[in-house]
Design a protein around this nucleic acid. Structure first.
Length: 508
RNA sequence: CGGGGUAUAGCGCAGCCUGGUAGCGCGUCUGCUUCGGGAGCAGAAGGCCGUAGGUUCGAAUCCUGCUACCCCGACCA
């Protein structure tokens, strides 16, 4: 029986490939590869509740690295953290028409506040039904704008630049670890402004924060763009996105930033008195990234031997594996401790001194877990003042001199590793981003090999919907850069004058 | 919600057709020997065979109901 998420150990599957008997090769079955990589790296475990996942320490540490870096970026751009409640009065969800439409189908609802013991086990106590049911937040716009209504009365109260780190629940039909789960962790920024211009500026600013973060920290090149009407956030005027390409050529929405106009201010009657003394509705933005980013990192960089992590989010950047016999053990371990001490605190290093595993087994384990560099240290190294080093990206083992310069050398290697991942991902994306001049050409290419299609497009929701049904490709975005190329061209699908340059792709 | 499948040890599976003491691999535990690329030997622990009923002297095995999960389709950060 395959467990939820298919995370059962694949160790004893038939037809073991040569490289790693535990991980299905990408070329054979990409989706299974993804699940195998996660299982072998020990990132998550199945939950007894369908569609939820337990994030284990090695997986959670990746999220913590993401969170800590982003949090610093939010603070640096003037934002502060706050926390709003998990439960939202049911009536709040119905205040903004499009918002209701977008989320109603996937909300978990709390109806009772007490259990009652019966012979068959506990049941919700019929006498403890809530006056008004509570919705478990699928996102927090409604409760936040309810509160902002109480906090805002004057232009002097603006802007409000609040972010919150929280969990949200969306009762999805189909789930995949990290990429789509019923409950996930994220941050949601919610800002309130005195003018449309200022709010739009904020929307774009945070999109750029995400772009820079993604490229610098996740080593993942992304395209910034605007969503088409059908892919827009429910309740937004404009939804901006950063889209990343995964190794199978599919797109993954990695972050979104919404210009909400005055929609929520009107729904929750949030007004302020401007400098001229007139009453005006407040302008809003919201923006978020989630634990999906962990999935993005996994899919973008890992290989058939398991997880590959950018050093900046790797829970362990360097693992030291001591090699010894009984009589040399203490000497070798002491030497390893000295090396580790010289790398800390700038570098996240761990000594694997478990005695029940041979060095080779440790090598394979840390490779599966995505540690960028491994140092192998045996008696000969102690003698020579050296350490063998092996990169997770492959290549021969090298020898490092253990002296006061070691920290700088290793840091340089980590930086180069980070850059190499980015370069590799960018090259792959460039190679698989193609321009086609007809819908037939798009379909033909999709059947052989997924890619991103940059095409001139005459905006039309019906045509967009047909294409989605017909070949599963959707408009990922209208890229911010290069829109002028649409001028004077005709739509690749309808032949009408193009209104946008669009990127079509299959997406998660 | 429609179609197809599965349910036996922590995990992966065999046993079921042809009813008769529940097995294998991995993992786990103990001990000894190992240790520069996935260790070897010896011993051990661990299962109401998803659940409720039926047939039978006897059910993991045959029959019926239920439940859960997986895959394929309709929704989505």
């Amino acid at each position: 029986m395959r467990e939820r998420f298919g995370l059962a150990s694949p160790a004893t599957r038939s037809e073991p490939p040569m490289s790693s008997p535990r991980i299905t090769p990408r070329a054979q079955d990409y989706s299974r590869w993804y699940q195998d990589v996660i299982a072998e790296a020990d990132l998550v475990d199945a939950s007894p509740v369908r569609g939820c996942m337990v994030i284990k320490p090695h997986g959670y540490a990746i999220w913590e690295a993401i969170r800590d870096d982003l949090d610093a970026r939010f603070k640096a751009t003037g934002h502060v953290n706050a926390y709003f409640p998990l439960f939202i009065p049911q009536s709040f969800l119905s205040k903004e028409a499009e918002h209701v439409e977008g989320f109603a189908k996937e909300c978990a609802v709390v109806t009772h506040h007490r259990l009652k013991a019966t012979p068959e086990g506990v049941i919700p106590d019929p006498d403890a039904r809530l006056e008004e049911p509570l919705v478990v937040r699928p996102t927090s716009e409604t409760i936040i704008w309810h509160m902002y209504g109480r906090w805002i009365s004057s232009w002097r109260d603006l802007p409000i630049l609040i972010n919150q780190w929280a969990n949200v629940v969306r009762w999805e039909m189909r789930t995949r670890p990290f990429l789509r789960t019923a409950e996930f962790l994220w941050q949601e920024g919610h800002t309130a402004h005195a003018s449309s211009e200022e709010a739009q500026e904020e929307t774009r600013r945070m999109l750029d924060v995400y772009r820079d973060f993604s490229e610098q920290i996740l080593a993942l090149p992304v395209v910034r763009g605007v969503k088409s009407a059908s892919e827009r956030f429910a309740g937004a005027i404009d939804t901006y996105t950063i889209e990343g390409m995964m190794q199978n050529g599919w797109a993954l929405q990695c972050g979104t930033s919404h210009f909400l106009g005055q929609n929520f201010a009107k729904a929750f009657e949030v007004t302020f008195q401007n400098k001229e003394g007139q009453l005006e509705h407040v302008w809003a933005t919201s923006w978020g990234v989630s634990t999906r980013l962990v999935g993005a990192v996994i899919m973008a960089h890992s290989d058939d031997d398991g997880l590959v992590l950018p050093p900046k989010v790797a829970p362990i950047q360097v693992v030291i594996v001591p090699i010894y016999k009984a009589e040399t053990r203490q000497t070798v371990i002491d030497y390893c401790e000295r090396i580790a001490a010289s790398l800390r605190p700038g570098i996240r290093v761990r000594i694997d001194d478990r005695e029940n595993l041979k060095p080779g087994a440790k090598y394979f384990e840390w490779e599966r877990k995505g540690v960028p560099f491994r140092l192998e240290v045996g008696p000969r190294d102690v003698e020579a003042g050296t350490a063998m080093v092996k990169s997770r990206l492959g290549g021969d083992k090298g020898s490092l001199t253990v002296d006061e310069g070691l920290g700088a050398v290793v840091q340089g290697m980590l930086d180069a590793f980070q850059q190499a991942l980015y370069d590799r991902a960018l090259a792959a994306r460039t190679e698989r981003t193609v321009e086609v001049d007809s819908y037939e050409a798009l379909k033909a290419r999709l059947e052989s090999d997924a890619a991103w299609f940059l095409v001139p497009w005459a905006d039309d929701a019906e045509n967009e919907a047909f294409i989605k049904t017909d070949c599963k490709a959707t408009i990922r975005c209208f890229p911010l850069e290069g829109q002028e190329q649409a001028q004077g061209r005709t739509c690749f699908y309808s032949g009408r004058p193009a209104t946008h340059m669009a990127i079509f792709a299959r997406a998660y």
